[in-house]
Nucleic acid binder design. Structure first.
Length: 391
DNA sequence: TCTGGGGTCCTAGGACCC
DNA sequence: TCTGGGGTCCTAGGACCC
């Protein structure tokens, strides 16, 4: 039986979702004017998280600095992101998709795959996809693109064709006509660097890539990636729609300063803050971590990362922070200004076996108590926020 | 114009063990 | 005294995704 996969992608997700909220409050629809979602616009380091179609037509793009977008369009409407609302919108969208097929893989907050194999005939797939798209628009007030194909890659590529509020197909029989003329950069997993490497070798379109022998491709991008690219360029992908959500393998947090900082006290304060966030997050999901990594970014964007193994897995803020401080001392001269500091943990387990030492540090009880109070405060903050929203 | 924040996977070299 | 080959783990860095 031929597979039928849908990829559903919310058009300019964060911007659409903010627009829905404003429209519900009786305000103008920001989707109809040049507008963006961003962080604090007064912070010169803020970048754009999502842009409306009219903004995109002016050349404003995601990940662009807000200051640059304002220069392009001084009347640009800027709204702040609202994560709690976005999560609500995402859930509503996923629920509708799931009602079409329970074989659903959430790919990100605003994208998912569903496996429609056996749930509709290939001839009916476009009509079913259009119904799904219209149902989301009618019930939730925002638009999506649906890509229909015989595997996940083709469905994802198809959903990226003309936007918004469209259904496109990309069956295997259409690969040559619809996919091969596209530039290599349009292929999934081909980013800036890979594009540069390929075009330097005269490979410009996905078709060029598909016809290329694997031997020469291997020399350009390495063995594993060459194999993958060759399959993708030919429209082949047999990966299943994963219904199980995978557990996180790492958790990290980072802070970019409004201006570069070189005072060790400032850097340590930031490290403390991100350690609190990371440790809190792993405790919430009942993880412990065996590896701690610390990274710093200089003003030229170069990054230095250091990691170390802990003697024992932990979720205690003070122990994670302690390791990060040692790594920072090794990595940083204490003088050169830093743009950003970050902290991550990995080698996560749910293994709560704990080796009780007869000589356990008496400070441990204090550390745990501190963490417990921190977690309670965070939970309280969340409840207050939820209450204020309802009011 | 001057570039956020949170993830995943791959590669390559070195250490260490058998 | 000098030599091998394989496996695993760790580290650092890079590329990509949304």
């Amino acid at each position: 039986m031929p597979r039928i996969i849908f990829h559903i992608d919310v058009n300019s997700a964060f911007l659409s979702w903010s627009a829905v909220k404003l429209v519900q409050a009786g305000e103008a629809d920001i989707r109809l004017v040049p507008s963006v979602v961003s962080g604090d616009p007064s912070d010169r380091r803020s970048i754009i998280t999502a842009a409306s179609m009219p903004a995109k037509k002016l050349g404003i793009k995601t990940a662009q600095p807000v200051s640059m977008a304002l220069r392009i369009c001084p009347s640009l409407v800027i709204v702040r992101g609202d994560w709690a609302w976005y999560k609500q919108c995402s859930q509503g969208f996923i629920e509708i998709c799931r009602s079409y097929s329970p074989v659903l893989q959430q790919f990100s907050i605003d994208e998912c795959f569903i496996d429609m194999t056996g749930r509709c005939e290939p001839e009916a797939a476009v009509a079913v996809a259009a119904r799904l798209k219209d149902e989301v628009r009618t019930r939730l007030g925002f638009t999506v693109n649906v890509g229909v194909g015989s595997n996940k890659l083709l469905a994802k590529m198809a959903s990226d064709f003309e936007k918004p509020d469209k259904v496109h197909t990309l069956w295997e029989s259409e690969v040559q006509q619809k996919m091969w003329p596209l530039g290599v950069r349009d292929l999934l997993w081909v980013g800036k660097k890979t594009e540069e490497r390929l075009t330097a070798n005269g490979i410009r379109t996905i078709g060029d890539l598909a016809r290329l022998g694997q031997g020469s491709l291997r020399q350009m991008v390495g063995e594993k990636f060459a194999l993958q690219l060759h399959e993708f360029a030919n429209g082949r992908d047999d990966s299943p729609v994963h219904t199980e959500s995978e557990e996180a393998k790492s958790v990290s947090a980072e802070r970019t300063f409004p201006r570069d900082l070189s005072d060790p006290r400032d850097i340590d304060r930031a490290l403390f803050n991100v350690a609190c966030i990371v440790a809190h997050r792993i405790r919430r999901y009942h993880f412990r971590a065996a590896t701690v990594s610390m990274f710093i970014k200089y003003k030229d964007f170069s990054v230095v990362q250091k990691q170390c193994q802990l003697e024992q897995s932990t979720d205690v803020t003070a122990l994670i922070l302690g390791a990060a401080r040692r790594l920072l001392a090794e990595a940083w001269d204490g003088v050169t200004p830093l743009r950003q500091v970050g902290l991550g943990v990995s080698k996560l387990t749910h293994d709560f076996y704990e080796q009780m030492s007869l000589f356990e540090d008496p400070k441990m009880a204090f550390y745990r108590d501190w963490d417990r109070q921190y977690d309670e405060q965070r939970a309280e903050d969340a409840r207050t926020l939820a209450y204020e929203r309802k009011a």
